[in-house]
Design a protein around this nucleic acid. Structure first.
Lengths: 170, 170
DNA sequence: GTCTACATGTAACTCGTTACATGATTAA
DNA sequence: TTAATCATGTAACGAGTTACATGTAGAC
């Protein structure tokens, strides 16, 4: 359950509302974590119930109130201990590779060709998106964040060259 | 829900029991799909209820009966239509990258160093495991399957070189 | 007049994980 | 005698998705 920690981490950078968090995930953290709005609100509720976040409500005219959250001391300690704990092994679940693995039963090679073309377009689009996220890398935290983006980029690049290899191998 | 289709795909290659499927996922499909035993049994039940699988029970002496499943016509058609349908976009959830992204708040650089070392060991081990799965690539279906393995290998390799880059960048 | 941004959430469902439960055979 | 392999599953929980529900302000 890393969404908890991703939220703590983002709120450590800057106090925010659920709405702001959703935008931040979509805009600047999308290369390593996808978060659903409904799950963000739910998780904010439980983090607050555990005393890891403080909420304060800011009234606005002609707009819904902002419910802004910030880390408590306990939240900050929880984030630290997570950072120092070993990262769990991720288990692969790649629906695209699953299709390729089983595509041999379709004798028509166009089945694979279509999958490959769709994939190439999708990956290319993602690559463009990530390249637009380029951020400064002067301070240490900035360099770390930039390197996670670099991670996404190198994986997408290698995926594209693997797609070329796949087409040649057929 | 691709586990359904991964199971249909594997049973198309060869009729099997839940137990056999678990071994097959762990031994030969682990580079693209991780499957849990309890979920395999549950999914076999629902696929059979939908008429996509036939079960036949083989009695054994001094061992539990084998419940062997094979594709029905409907199951075979379902697998085909999945192969031809566009693959959904995968949403990233990388707990390791999340740690790196937020690790800047720990001023001690050893926090990152330890994460990197653990990661390098883990990725290296996975790479060795995948390299041992090397399979024939003479027929068309074999070549496709071999290429999915190749996909796992190139991603692990690029991850290792990114780890080097990360250490240098700090 | 239509779309986007702002801002909140709940309910129901599906998918995946962990823990529980059983028991014989064979190889080291 | 201990561990691995064979073989079945259920119950409860946790994580993630989809659909539902509401309303204003400002830009084009």
């Amino acid at each position: 359950m890393s969404l908890r920690y991703a939220i703590l981490g983002l709120l450590d950078l800057k106090p925010m509302t659920g709405y702001d968090l959703k935008k931040t995930f979509d805009n600047t953290a999308r290369h390593f974590w996808a978060a659903d709005r409904s799950q963000i609100y739910r998780t904010l509720g439980s983090l607050q119930a555990e005393g890891l976040l403080d909420e304060h409500i800011i009234a606005q005219r002609s707009r819904p109130d902002r419910h802004e959250y910030r880390l408590t001391e306990a939240g900050s300690a929880e984030l630290d201990s997570w950072l120092r704990s070993p990262a769990p092994v991720e288990l692969p679940r790649e629906a695209f590779l699953a299709r390729i693995y089983f595509a041999g039963r379709a004798e028509d090679p166009r089945v694979v060709q279509r999958l490959v073309e769709e994939r190439r377009a999708l990956i290319g689009k993602r690559l463009d998106e990530l390249r637009e996220l380029e951020a400064p890398r002067t301070t240490y935290p900035e360099r770390l964040r930039a390197m996670t983006l670099r991670n996404g980029i190198v994986h997408l690049e290698v995926e594209l060259s693997w797609l070329d290899e796949l087409e040649e191998a057929l």
